[in-house]
């Protein structure tokens, strides 16, 4: 597992240019289908970033969709049932999801590893079943109907969420940017190193003073908060939330996107993986062959694990392109030990 962030490899100007081009997308196309796809893949990107952060501490969460559901339902219940405005509900969704991940993490991450995977898997199912059975609050399988966020008025300029998906597009970008910024900072700070230590050799890390549970819980909670916010945005964008949207397959999709994108980068990997696979998945829903999507996703994961192993993923191709083609750096060949 490598833990270099390509933040330092790829020049800032290139990242800036890419961000600029992405910002201009709505100028070139206002096609609702295209923008919706980009918005949804953006929302999934945030969830995948969270998953990747947890994976950086060496823990496999199989229930990240639970936090999307908790975020979505919290926001839906507060706006629809209790009549709260959008913004407080949005942040409350992140907080609720964060608190659940904190509590679950403090219980399970003491042991971690396979137990963590099993409990998070169960958590995903529990959340889905509660959403299904708690009829008076969640309306069960019929789901809750939400309204889009209220228009924002900025100096005479009105941003209307109801008229077109463009405001959602920028809102999603903001959420991604904030998440990316925080994960980048985590990656470069003491936390990032401690995460690497805890993941790469827990026994050694513990004997060097790192409290395993503390760092696992921090990663899991940060992931929980942002996944919750993404869940809230997801529900408001689709204007409906049902228990069927969040299940085991969604959790597995998050995992697949993270692995295909590559976990060597906390930001680049999730973005590349999600956009690629979400677009592919969206296209595959139109193909009328049963089970083609899981089959193809599985094949892609196998290919990535064979050709880009040890968590390098597709983002590593990007890194290699920069170091080899652009910088023309010679590939480093380790000497064979000779004594």
């Amino acid at each position: 597992m490598r833990f270099i962030d390509y933040k330092n490899v790829v020049p800032k100007t290139v990242i800036g240019l890419l961000v600029f081009l992405i910002l201009l997308i709505p100028v070139f196309t206002t096609n609702v289908a295209t923008l919706s796809m980009l918005i949804l893949s953006g929302i999934w990107t945030v969830a995948v970033m969270g998953f990747t952060l947890v994976l950086r501490t060496g823990q496999f969460s199989l229930g990240q969709s639970a936090f999307l559901a908790i975020g979505g339902y919290t926001s839906a219940i507060f706006t629809v049932k209790l009549g709260w405005p959008f913004w407080p509900s949005f942040f409350l969704a992140g907080m609720a999801s964060g608190i659940v991940s904190l509590l679950v993490g403090m219980v399970v991450l003491r042991v971690g590893n396979i137990y963590f995977s099993i409990i998070t898997l169960a958590l995903g199912e529990i959340v889905r079943i509660i959403a299904q059975q708690w009829e008076p609050v969640t309306r069960g399988t019929r789901g809750l109907i939400l309204s889009p966020p209220p228009p924002i008025i900025l100096g005479g300029f009105k941003i209307n969420f109801e008229a077109s998906p463009v405001p959602y597009f920028y809102f999603t970008l903001c959420l991604i940017a904030v998440t990316a910024l925080i994960l980048w900072q985590i990656g470069q700070s003491r936390l990032g190193r401690a995460f690497a230590g805890v993941a790469l050799n827990p026994v050694l890390a513990e004997h060097q003073g790192m409290h395993l549970m503390k760092y696992r819980v921090i990663a899991f909670t940060v992931a929980g908060v942002f996944t919750g916010l993404a869940g809230s945005l997801y529900a408001h964008f689709l204007t409906v939330i049902t228990p069927y949207v969040f299940g085991l397959w969604q959790s597995i999709q998050i995992m697949i996107m993270s692995i295909v994108g590559g976990i060597s980068s906390l930001v680049g990997g999730p973005i590349i993986g999600t956009i690629l696979l979400y677009t592919l998945g969206d296209y595959l829903t139109r193909v009328k062959t049963f089970g083609i999507q899981p089959l193809l996703f599985g094949a892609i994961v196998v290919m990535v694990l064979i050709f880009l192993p040890k968590g390098t993923g597709l983002v590593d191709l990007w890194g290699r392109f920069w170091t080899k083609v652009v910088w023309r750096e010679e590939e480093y060949e380790p000497d064979t030990p000779d004594d």
């Binding site: 833990f3 900072q185 985590i186 003491r190 401690a194 690497a196 050694l204 060097q208 003073g209 790192m210």
Partner: peptide, 27 residues
Amino acid sequence: LYEGTTVVESMLISSYQQYRTKNWQSF
């Protein structure tokens, strides 16, 4: 060892206790 790291990376991970600064300060 820390799997998959170089010597300097292993040393930097191990330097955890060298720091007096808090996690948020490094953030």
